[in-house]
Amino acid sequence: MNRILRFALYALAFGIVLAGFWAATAHAQSPTPTDDEVNRIAHQLYCPVCENTPLDVCPTEACRQWRDLIRQQLSEGWTEAQIKQYFVQQYGVRVLAEPPASGLNWLVYVLPPLIILAGAFLLFRAMRGWIKPPAASALSPLSSSPNGRGMSEGEDAPKDEYVARLEEELKKRK
């Protein structure tokens, strides 16, 4: 109860502030939207004045007013989509976290995968060109260690060229 009262008070205070600004249409409907509900939508919108700052965390006075506006719209029963649409109409698509996939903006989404696929294709082709089928004897990892002594620790020993080299060297030092 206390909480509802508090929010009602807050909404009232905010209503008075907005009264002149918003042509006195503000009238809070219950239940009053919580800060979290406001922030959830504000987080998806970008401050129309600051660079790359989500609206929920922007500390400027303008953004505080915009958050209040979202609260107002929520209390009037606007949906999330409507609120976003409103902001886009007012301030342009830059308020969205990502550009809508239309017109030139398609390129944002299409170009990177295309380039990456092209890169992968080039790499694959290049690798196929480099790889010559190894001779049958070369397939065994044992042959990569000089004179085969590296693997004398038994069949369970890891067949790593490096470990083989290491052991080889240790033997030489003894």
């Binding site: 970008y46 790359n52 989500p54 342009g92 698509v93 830059r94 308020v95 969205l96 976290a97 990502e98 550009p99 017109g103 030139l104 903006n105 390129l107 944002v108 170009l111 990177p112 380039i115 990456i116 890169g119």
Partner: peptide, 30 residues
């Protein structure tokens, strides 16, 4: 590949502004 995404994400708003005059944000979800 990560570089391509980063580069394009940073450069695209500039490209968009240059060609269409439209300011866009390429943000964290992307």
């Amino acid at each position: 590949s990560v570089l391509v995404i980063c580069f394009w994400g940073v450069v695209f708003p500039i490209v968009s502004q240059l060609f269409t005059g439209q300011t866009v944000t390429v943000g964290p979800p992307f």
